[in-house]
């Protein structure tokens, strides 16, 4: 199978119904949470999905996990269409795509021991009685940096620190030997000194276990050193996608430029002009006409209000959706 088509997402949309604007109004308002997203993921590749809250990145994660049903578009995994599988058909697939959540304090059941938490995925998938069950649990825990595993097994989540809990979540994902890990803001709740640890761990996994990582974050700064490619999302769409260096060093979309300019640089000698956008991401119920970024765009021209910019190919790997790039 071609490595290009490991995971392929095309025109993915998710519209939530948000009730009627007035009691007897005929049309139902819709939240355009994800509104036409497409990208591909190669084996053991790390792609970062970056955007502010409300850009639809978390909904996208739930769609990819099959925890929400898309309104339109397709998701293909290893060539197979997995867009609308039922729970039964999806079960095998779930093993291959695992998720790591934002809040390690909330995503562990407080009444289970660490061993039970890490073993649970095996039980769910019917591997409860395989002879190497315990070895697999120990290996997953140690690969996630909980060494030696015995020390942690009988503990409860509240006895661990935030970083250790996030490692438990990662271990519970690894135990099924997944091919993709979808990490939704995995470090934003952790202290700075511990963030690097979790990011380094994810970076190692792709090398030791050939796991592809979809890293969802609002902080472009944290993806710098380990993402292969970066996709910047705004209001339900990808506005720029490219290799990490292309996006960070040669951003083309005005939104990407602004996002990069406000990343704090830890050196007062390098203080620079920041492009601070006015206002906030608009409500995805009323998506602006034309380019959806135009109301906040510092360089918008008249035609931005009317026409929705197409994806412009800048290089083999670099694309951006901005009218200013259309030649």
């Amino acid at each position: 199978m071609s490595t290009e088509h490991f995971l392929e997402v095309q025109g993915l949309k998710k519209h939530f119904e948000a009730g009627r604007p007035a009691l007897f109004s005929r049309d139902v308002q819709k939240v355009h949470a994800v509104d036409g997203v497409g990208f591909t993921l190669r084996r053991s590749e790390v792609i970062a999905l970056v955007g502010e809250s409300g850009c639809g990145k978390s909904t996208l994660a739930l769609l990819l996990m099959g925890l929400e049903d898309p309104t339109a578009g397709t998701i293909k995994f290893e060539g197979q269409d997995i867009t609308h599988l039922n729970d039964h058909e999806r079960k095998d697939l779930r093993r291959k795509i695992q998720m790591v959540f934002q809040d390690p304090y909330e995503s562990l059941n407080p009444t289970q021991t660490i061993e039970e938490i890490v073993t649970e995925p095996l039980v769910v998938h019917g591997f409860a009685n395989v002879p190497d069950r315990r070895e697999r649990v120990v290996k997953a825990m140690e690969d996630a940096g909980l060494k030696p595993a015995e020390v942690y097994m009988s503990r409860y989540p509240h006895e661990l620190s935030g970083g250790q809990r996030q490692r438990v979540v990662i271990a519970a994902a690894l135990v099924l030997e997944p091919e993709i890990i979808l990490a939704d803001e995995p470090v934003s709740m952790l202290d700075v000194s511990i963030r690097a640890e979790v990011i380094n761990l994810l970076a190692e996994l792709r090398i030791t276990r050939q796991i592809a990582v979809i890293f969802i974050t609002h902080d472009l700064g944290s993806v710098g050193f380990f993402a292969d490619r970066v996709a910047v999302m705004y209001l339900g769409r990808i506005v720029e996608i490219g290799t990490m260096l292309e996006v960070l060093e040669n951003p083309q979309h005005p939104y990407t430029k602004a996002l990069i300019s406000v990343i704090p640089v830890p050196n007062p000698r390098l203080r620079h002009e920041r492009i601070i956008l006015k206002g906030e991401t608009p409500n995805p119920i009323n998506v602006p006409s034309g380019c959806r970024f135009h109301p906040r765009c510092p360089v918008a021209i008249e035609s931005c209000k009317a026409s929705d910019p197409p994806m412009v190919t800048l290089s083999k790997t670099h694309q951006s959706a901005c009218l200013l790039l259309v030649k």
């Binding site: 202290d191 000194s193 472009l220 960070l248 830890p266």
Partner: peptide, 24 residues
């Protein structure tokens, strides 16, 4: 010093982040 090394610096992408082992 360690805290600064653990902080992602966009002016130096590709630089491996160093973490401070252990917990406060």
């Amino acid at each position: 010093q360690e805290l600064l090394k653990a902080f992602p610096d966009l002016t130096k992408p590709k630089k491996k982040l160093s973490s401070i082992p252990g917990y406060p």
